[in-house]
Structure formats: C-alpha cells, structure tokens
C-alpha cells in the first residue's frame, strides 16, 4: 500500500516536473533562434542524419501497402483505386506516425543519451559556472531542431511512399496499374486539408518526442545506468505518446 502510494507520488511528481521544465524550455526557445549556427548543427544531427532511414522506410512501406492493397482491391475489380488507397493511408496515418516512431528511435534516443551524458560528466554544471544557461545553449536548440525536422521528414516519407520509389513503383511498374489512373484517382480523392492535417499531426508528434527526449536526458540520474534508463524510457514513452496522440488527433480531424 505504502509502496503504491510512493510510486504514484513519484509518477505525479515526474509529470509535474515535466510541465515546469516544458515552460522553461519554451521560454528559452527565442534564445535558440539567436544562435542559428547551433540550431543548424542540431537540425543536421536530428533531421539530416534521419533522412536515409526515413527515405528507405518510406519506400518500403509504400511498396508493401501497394502489394497488400492490390490483393484486396483486385477482388472487387477496383485495382485502379490503388493510388487512392496508398495515398490516403500514407498521408493521413502512416506518414506522420511511422516517421515519428523512426525519429523517436533514431534521434530522440540520441538526444536523451547526449544530454544525459552531458549531465553525468558535469558539462551542464560547468556551463552554469560560466554563466551560460544550459537550457538556452543545449536544450532549446535541440527541441527546436526536432520541431522543425519532424514535419519535413514526414513530408519526405509520404512523397517517397506514394511516389516513384514506393507505391508507384510496385503498383504501376510491377502490378500494371495504369500510370494515369494512379495519379488521377489520387488527385480526385486527396484534399489539401488532408495534407495540412498530416503536417499538423507530425508537428505535434515532433513536439511530444522533443519534450520527452529532452526531459528524460535533462533529468536522468547522473550515472551510466541513469543515462541508459533515460534512453530506454525516451523511446518507450515517445512511442506510446505518439500512438495515443495519434488516436486523439485522428478522432478530432476525421470526424
């Protein structure tokens, strides 16, 4: 009973601390914009370094969707609608979600580990000694970089999955769906609102992943075990947050 109470208190304390931390980080964000060089460095390590995995996964997800969709659609004689199937699934759901999961695993964990290690080796304290706010110098640029990179990566993922490397390659070149009807059907069914919703989704996912990664790193126990635990819980918590958030957002957007 007592241990349960302690655990609960600890969970609530963690959530509360994360809120205050978020407010502090948000307050430090304008400072990140005044240091474009550091921001560029972080966009490189979060965005550019995730590019290859996002491009490759996008292509494969698109190919699989086209193969699976074709099998079902052909039973109804509706294989010309393959493009719509792939495009809607990718733009509305898989684009933002899979990209966010990949980035959480690829960049979110790296962020948490890096910040946690900085803390463990007293680099953050050293910065404070030199009157440099680590929130402004270390945390805010990483947070902002994640926020910028996520919608861009998601858009690249979607284009790869729908386009000539993914669904289009399998659907048109392999399965023989007509090229014109592939694009024509997509254009007739996908609306600009879908694209806007997709970008909103991925931006919010970016926000969630950035918040969790940065918080876990900054509040990691300053030991090697603490850093490893922070990395693990970043991936676990962000994946859960992404999927739960996706449910809520989908319920709001596609009524």
């Amino acid at each position: 009973m007592n241990t349960l109470l302690t655990t609960l208190t600890a969970v609530f304390a963690g959530i509360g601390r994360a809120q205050f931390f978020l407010i502090n980080v948000l307050a430090a964000l304008p400072a990140a914009l005044t240091r474009p060089r550091i921001l560029a460095q972080q966009v490189h390590s979060v965005g550019v370094m995730s590019l290859i995995i996002v491009v490759l996964s996008g292509s494969f997800v698109g190919m699989v969707l086209a193969l699976q969709g074709f099998r079902t659609l052909v039973r109804f004689g509706a294989e010309e609608s393959l493009g719509v199937f792939v495009a809607l699934v990718i733009v509305r759901e898989l684009g933002p979600v899979v990209t966010a999961l990949l980035v959480a695993g690829r960049a979110g964990s790296a962020l948490a580990a890096e910040i946690g290690l900085m803390k463990a080796t007293d680099q953050l304290s050293a910065m404070e000694m030199m009157a440099t706010d680590p929130l402004k110098r270390v945390i805010a640029p990483r947070f902002l970089a994640m926020l910028i990179s996520m919608p861009l990566l998601s858009a690249i993922f979607s284009v790869m999955a729908i386009g000539i490397a993914g669904g289009h390659a399998v659907g048109v070149s392999l399965l023989g769906v007509d090229d014109g009807s592939y694009w024509g059907q997509i254009r007739a069914s996908v609306e600009v609102q879908d694209i806007v919703d997709s970008l909103i989704k991925s931006t919010l996912f970016g926000f969630a992943v950035a918040w969790i990664a940065v918080y876990q790193g900054y509040h990691a126990a300053p030991t090697s075990e603490g850093v490893s635990r922070a990395t693990t819980s970043t991936v676990v918590l962000s994946s859960l947050a992404i999927l739960a958030l996706d449910f809520v957002l989908t319920a709001f957007m596609f009524r």
């Binding site: 965005g47 990179s149 690249i156 694209i195």
Partner: peptide, 9 residues
C-alpha cells in the same frame, strides 16, 4: 535537407 522537406510538402 530543409529545401528537400519543403519541396516534398
């Protein structure tokens, strides 16, 4: 990277 992302959008 930024240009590629915007082009994708």
């Amino acid at each position: 990277f930024i240009c590629l992302g915007i082009a994708a959008i």
